[in-house]
C-alpha cells in the first residue's frame, strides 16, 4: 500500500494474521493449526464498498470480524481514520465500534427472539448515549422507515418477520449508532433472489445517502460486481488478487480469479460453453500446500509455484496480484 493511499483510506488493514489452534481426533487428539488469515492487507476508501470474495474457509468472514476485533488478530495492523485499532483499550474500542458496525448473514440467528424489535434497535443508542425518552422512540421510528419497515414493527418480535424483513432489522440495528463503516458478512446469501435485490438496493441507497462504506463479504461474484467498487479475492487465508470493479472480473489475472469467474453461473444458456471447470477441491487451511497454495489446482503451475509463495505485485490502478505468472 502506498503512503498516499493509506492516508486517504477510511480503513487500512496490513499484514493481518490469525491462526486458530484446535485439538482434534479420537482417541489420540492432535493439535492442528488452522491458518485462517495469513497476512491479509487491504484498504477501504470513504464511501467505498470493498468486496472480499472466496470459497468456504478462505478466511473472508474471519477477516471481517478481525477488523472489528470480534476475533482478536494475532498480528498485523488495523487503522481506522489512521488510528491504530489494535492498540485501543476496552473503553476506546467500544467507542470506536460506534463507527464500525456489522450485519450478519443469518437474520434468524442474529436477533434475540425474546426481544421486541423496538428494544433491539434502541439498545445500541442507549449504550452509546445517543438518545433517550421520546427522542429515542422517534429515532427508532425513523430507522424503521429508513430500512422500509412499518412503524408498528417496533412492537413486534423477530419471528413475526420474514427473512428479508429480519435482514432489514439487522441493518437498522447496525445503522442505529450512525456508523461510517459496515462489515456486511454475506448479508444477502440466505435470501431469495427477489428479496436479495430489495436488500441490495437498500444497502446501495444507504451508501449513497449516508456516505457509508462497506466491507462486503460474499461468495457471489455477481452480487459483488453489482455492489462493490473494488474487490479482493481470497484463497486459503491470503489475498491472491485485488483490484477495482468491474475491471477485475472482466479481465481477471490470477488463475484462481479466472476459475471463480468461469465457474460462476450466468443466467444465459448461451454462456454455458464458457463455463470453466477446475479440478480438485480447496485444500484444508490446516495444511495448505507448499509454495503457492493454489498450485495443485492451477492449470499454469510451474516448478517455482510448488516451492515458493509468489510475492505480492502492485500493477497500478489499484490492481495487485500474487502469482508467479506476473514475475518479471
Amino acid at each position: 500500500m502506498t503512503a498516499t493511499a493509506a492516508a486517504s483510506a477510511l480503513l487500512d488493514v496490513e499484514g493481518l494474521r490469525k491462526f486458530f489452534t484446535v485439538r482434534r481426533g479420537f482417541p489420540n487428539p492432535r493439535t492442528i493449526t488452522v491458518r485462517a488469515l495469513d497476512g491479509v492487507s487491504f484498504s477501504v476508501r470513504p464511501g467505498e464498498a470493498f468486496g472480499l470474495v472466496g470459497e468456504s474457509g478462505c478466511g473472508k468472514s474471519t477477516a471481517g470480524r478481525a477488523v472489528l476485533r470480534l476475533i482478536e488478530p494475532d498480528e498485523g495492523a488495523i487503522r481506522f481514520h489512521g488510528k491504530d485499532v489494535r492498540a485501543l483499550d476496552r473503553g476506546a474500542l467500544r467507542a470506536l465500534r460506534r463507527k464500525m458496525q456489522i450485519v450478519f448473514q443469518d437474520p434468524y440467528a442474529s436477533l434475540n427472539p425474546k426481544r421486541l424489535i423496538g428494544k433491539t434497535l434502541a439498545e445500541p443508542m442507549q449504550v452509546h448515549g445517543l438518545a433517550k425518552g421520546a427522542a429515542l422512540a422517534e429515532r427508532v421510528r425513523a430507522l424503521l422507515d429508513e430500512v422500509g419497515l412499518p412503524a408498528d414493527a417496533a412492537g413486534r418480535y423477530p419471528h413475526e418477520f420474514s427473512g428479508g424483513q429480519r435482514q432489514r432489522i439487522g441493518i437498522a440495528r447496525a445503522l442505529s449508532v450512525e456508523p461510517e463503516l459496515v462489515i456486511a458478512d454475506e448479508p444477502v446469501s440466505a435470501l431469495d433472489v427477489s428479496i436479495q435485490a430489495q436488500v441490495l438496493l437498500l444497502l446501495r441507497g444507504l451508501q449513497q445517502r449516508r456516505g457509508l462504506s462497506y466491507v462486503f463479504v460474499s461468495h457471489d461474484l455477481g452480487v459483488v460486481r453489482w455492489f462493490c467498487q473494488a474487490v479482493a479475492v481470497m484463497y486459503l487465508g491470503r489475498i491472491v488478487e485485488r483490484g477495482p470493479l468491474p475491471a477485475m472480473f472482466d479481465e481477471p489475472l490470477h488463475p484462481y480469479t479466472k476459475a471463480l469467474r468461469g465457474a460462476s453461473p450466468v443466467p444465459d444458456p448461451r454462456a454455458r460453453v464458457t463455463m470453466m471447470r477446475i479440478e480438485g477441491e480447496v485444500p484444508s487451511a490446516a495444511s495448505p500446500p507448499p509454495g503457492c497454495h493454489f498450485h495443485p489446482r492451477c492449470p499454469h503451475a510451474m516448478e517455482r509455484c510448488r516451492v515458493e509463495y509468489p510475492a505480492w505485485k502492485e500493477l497500478g490502478q489499484g490492481r495487485g496480484v500474487a502469482c508467479h505468472l506476473f514475475d518479471e
Binding site: S162, G164, V193, S194, I195, Q196, A197, Q198, L200, L201, D220, L221, G222, V223, R225, W226, F227, P246, F249, R261, S264, V266, P267, D268, A271
Partner: peptide, 23 residues
C-alpha cells in the same frame, strides 16, 4: 421477467437491478 431482472450478473455491468416488491 422480474426474476431475471433481479439477478446481479457477474458477466455484465448493469445498474438496473430491479427488486420485486412485496413477498
Amino acid at each position: 421477467e422480474a426474476l431475471l431482472r433481479s439477478i446481479p450478473r457477474v458477466d455484465r455491468t448493469s445498474d438496473a437491478l430491479v427488486a420485486i416488491p412485496g413477498q
